[in-house]
Amino acid sequence: MNAKRSSYLIVTLSLAALLIFAMFGAGCTSTESKTTAATSAPTASPTVAATAQQTVAAASTTAAVTAAPVSTIASSGEKQTIKISGSTTVLPIVQKAADQYMATHEGADIQIAGGGSGVGVQAIGAKTVDIGMSSREVTSAEKAKYPGLVITSVAQDGIAVVVNPANEIDYITLDQIKNIYLGKITKWTEITGANVPNTNNQIVIIGRDSASGTRSYFDETILSKKTPTNKMLEKNSNGAVLQTVAQTPGSIGYISIGFVSDDVKALPIWYNAQDIVAPTIDNVKTKTYPVSRDLYVITNGQPTGLTSDFINYILGPDGQKIVADEGYVTLS
């Protein structure tokens, strides 16, 4: 009986071991094929021509902007696919550009996923996608890890400081914002003109998560790289900040100006009585509004084929019109 049981055990254990080895084996072989594939054609992006890396397009992205986008690619009706992933902030622009691009380019299939800037950079670095999207600058560590990355900014984004409409405040200074987010000002009564009726005027501080591009930009420019108070409530998207500020009377938050709606009050920045700057697209474009940043698309190596054509489309007049329509700020 004992012998029988132990032999069962040996059989089953060896089967299990086989299973594990098979999985490892599958992993190893496919990594090999990945490394070989990387030099020929990434399996995930069939449209990138096999010789793409050798015949790098000589034109830099900036040069390509000025060149009229010639859309010989993918207009023949043959199905071509590119994959894009990354920042959810950049996603709306690229998505809408892709919709319009595909409408005029029969056969082009552009698939766009979110995930976040970090995912975007990693995915393009590992070449699982053709274009990565990022709402933050690519870090030096990332650049070192993936030396082939080519970064193109496609739009600008202003960051508006918003409060609940119930707040009687009309404008705010950069210093006051800073002190609120550092936890030095905790009551609206400490700010001239601010009052939230029917509450104890406690400030509810809303911010973005610490990995967000918006947050790092905000901390850097407004808080002079200091860390905000740990009482700050953290949200992981513009939409969530907007929603929270819209329903919390004593709150303050910051969002992309594309998201500003009637549900919240976007505060102008007060420098002095003559110089009050509202968070409008014009003020971001002329750089008078102090809090704005770039949004990026990233390719691994110079873009070619459909990838290049599509990026040029975003940078061209049609693409930039979409940028404006979505409430972001155009490049020029």
Binding site: G116, S117, G118, K145, D209, A211, S212
Partner: peptide
């Protein structure tokens, strides 16, 4: 009181963080 859970931290920070950094 507001609180933050481990999963929420993963959920809100994982997508954007630079892969390979200390934060990651």
């Amino acid at each position: 009181s507001p609180v933050r859970t481990l999963t929420a931290t993963l959920g809100i920070e994982m997508g954007e963080v630079a892969v390979g950094s200390d934060h990651y």
